[in-house]
Computed example of a mutant assay.
Amino acid sequence: MNAPMIEPDLIVRREGSAGVVRLNRPKALNALTLEMARGLDAALTEFGADPAVALILIEGAGERGLCAGGDIVGLYNSAREGGDLGAVFWREEYVMNARIAKYPKPYVAYMDGFVMGGGVGIAGHGSHRIVTEKTRIAMPEVGIGFFPDVGGTWLLSRSPGEIGTYFGLTGETMNGADAIHARFADAHVPTSAWAELRAALIAAPAGADADQVRSIIAGFAATPEPGPAQLHGRQIDAWFAHDTVEEIFADLERDGSEFALATLKAMRGKSPTSLKVALKLLRMARGAATLEQCLVHEYRAALEVFRSADFVEGIRAAVIDKDRAPKWQPARIDEVTPQIVARYFADRGVEELKFPD
């Protein structure tokens, strides 16, 4: 009796005129490993050189989502052992994120179900980003002692008003409608229409350009009802306009509404250091001219995160022991000094990111 064939974590193949990349770790919600990131980068090279490939299609195996983020258990183990996986993984991942943003062929990301962290990095910079009624997008990194990365600070800082600041500092989840409003997505397609849309994309003419692909998607798209964050846009813009976490907290406390207090509670559970670092990165991103500038700032900060107690503790509490009771160091916002924050923005003289032309 033959043993069942074990599929790889990343499935890369031609289907019609589409270069299809399927993240294939459904039991881990397709969390991205270093090997998968390298495989995706290699696929972009292969499909980019193939004149028969009109577009790239990124999808996730299983029914739960595209990608839950990076392989944080592997990063946790490396950080505890003093390894360098973080430096290597983030360097290669961030360069790939920049490459996706500049990819010369239409890059279609199907963001059905959960899309978090690193999943945003492989989908949010694409040229054609599709969400559904099941989409749940989040950048919850401040809850594990980290911050929105993979170019997330670039995306969040370009959302209208302060909605990006809100999502970056609370880690709250966007539905499909809020994702379009926050400029993380382009089209809302019901899951019931996906099979037919997918077939249409695969059948696209070999020379199809971005406008033609957009037209194909538009034929299956629908307009969703406004998302909850959009409906609270005026309040969010007022509360999160400040440049310090302390002022944001104070405004939320003064407001006292149910939504304000829920927002405050969400933020108070996060790493105080991460909140301050994330807010500074978001404000820096607002003035950045390119995605690459944001990725460099994120990389420098990530190297300090990998050395910090909060990163290991955050993953322990959320994923390893799952007690949801992290002990942050420092434990309070007012204990996070400017000197602590400054460590995340130091030029360490390390190898910088080398982006594609």
Rank of each mutant, 00 (worst) to 15 (best):
A285I: 08
E335H: 13
Y107S: 10
T337R: 11
E162Y: 02
R14Q: 13
G86N: 08
E253Q: 14
N175Q: 09
S308T: 02
Q235P: 00
I202S: 07
L252W: 02
F89E: 01
F114K: 14
A250W: 00
A177L: 10
T135D: 10
R300V: 01
E92H: 01
E141R: 04
A241N: 06
F184T: 02
F345G: 04
I202P: 04
G233W: 01
L279G: 00
G39W: 03
R234T: 15
I72W: 08
R283A: 09
R214T: 09
Y299A: 07
E225Q: 15
P140F: 03
G168E: 03
F240H: 04
F146H: 12
V350Q: 09
W154K: 02
L197T: 04
V73C: 09
L282I: 13
D178V: 02
A138V: 03
A331M: 12
H125W: 05
A193S: 14
P140Y: 04
G48Y: 06
E81H: 10
S157C: 08
T263W: 00
D50M: 10
E7W: 06
V73W: 11
V21F: 02
F167T: 09
R283C: 03
E351L: 12
L231I: 14
G287L: 09
A302Q: 03
G124C: 12
G121T: 03
I144F: 11
K134T: 15
G168K: 02
V53D: 04
G117H: 05
D41A: 14
E304D: 08
R99N: 10
K354V: 11
A206D: 11
T191M: 15
T290W: 08
L23E: 07
E63N: 13
G39T: 05
